[in-house]
Each structure stands twice: as structure tokens, then as C-alpha cells.
Amino acid sequence: MPVPEPTPLERFLNGILPENPVYRQLLGLCPTLAVTAAMKPAMTMVGATAFVLICANLITSLIRHLLKPHLRILVFTLTIATFVTIADRTLAAFAYPMSKLLGPYVPLIIVNCMIISRCEVCSSKQGPKAALADAVGVSLGFLLALASVATVREILGNGSWFGIQLVPESFPTLILMILPPGAFLALGSLLGLATWLGHRRRARESAAEAGSV
């Protein structure tokens, strides 16, 4: 018997934590490492990625019955590239300094496996409602991931959060955290923490199940 596809609500909730693109699937690591030195660029990247993901998921879901299996990846890429270009040009028009700061990372959303994997796993198989819920859920999951890494890096490395100074400027900061090695240190530590919390939760659940049996 075929396994039923998840409902839109399940898709939405799964994207946030159980199937978090960064902490669970280890996808989208390039922007997670590259643009998380501060919250502002990280949140701009989340916004651009969410826009592309939502549009790509909706379009591929609407045309899912017309897709030919051997040409589907081409359709996904074409769709994603179109919306990435729109996001890139929109940033250059309305947030030029941020567009310059993010540099090649906005065009690089095209090769973010997180987006193409959602087209493959969800939107090419389910209707627009589930595809939209999935895209919003995964975007929120991506937001959580980038916000957590950027928060750790900006506070430790710069003493600020979202550009707001939290500690006096004379306070010593760990400059390393806003440099590239800081991205690996922050992501590695948070990934370890997320995995440890997951293991602990599962251990508790299985202990509770054993107790009830």
C-alpha cells in the first residue's frame, strides 16, 4: 500500500524543526556559513531564499501533471533561476548596499539544494496548498537556522544584534567569530547542540514508551 503524502499542516510543521533544512538535512550550508556574520545580511538572505522557494514550489506544483520525469530537474532549475534573478534585481533596486554586501551569494541561491529538494520531494507531487505550506515551513526552518548562527556570531564577534550595540564598545569581543572560521565554529557547535537535544528527546520518548509497555 502506498504511503500517503503528508498533509499541508504536516508539511508546514516538518519544515520548521523535524526536517529543518540546515540542522537536519545539512542543506543550504553555503549561505549559512557565508552571510551570517551579522543578522541583517542573514535575514535578507532568508527573505530572498523564501521568496524563491515559495514561488518555485507554487509554480512546480501547478504544472506537476505536465512534468516529464527525465526533464523535471531542468524545469525546476529554470523556475528557480528566474525567481533568483528577480530577487537579485529587486535587491539591487531597493536595497543596493545590502545587494553589494551579499555579492554573489544572492545569485548562488540558484544552486541551493534546499530549494530544488523541496521541488523534488513535495511540490512536484502535491497540490499548491501543500507546496505553499511546505515552502513557508522550510523557509521558517531556514530562518531559525540562519538567525541562530548569526545571533551567536554577531553577539560574540561584534557585541551587537541586528546592528544594536548590546555591550559597551570597550568590551572585548571575539573577532574570530565574524571571520570565516567563526562561521564553522558557530555552526558546528549549534549542530552538535541540536543533535544532542534530538537524541535526548528520542531517548526520553523511548524510555516513556518502554515504561508504558
Partner: peptide, 29 residues
């Protein structure tokens, strides 16, 4: 390949419209 050709045409027109609309502003920036 009809679907890909059709999508390429539609997306191309969409990008042309975005370019026409936004390029003066980008040039000003």
C-alpha cells in the same frame, strides 16, 4: 520539450518586464 520552451518564453518575458521596470532605479543607485 514543449513545456520547457513555453516556460522559457514566459519566464523570459517576465524577466524582461522586471528589467525594464527596475533598471532605471538600479542605474541611479
Amino acid at each position: 520539450a514543449w513545456l520547457i520552451l513555453l516556460l522559457a518564453g514566459v519566464f523570459g518575458a517576465l524577466l524582461a518586464a522586471v528589467h525594464l521596470k527596475l533598471s532605471p532605479r538600479i542605474e541611479d543607485n
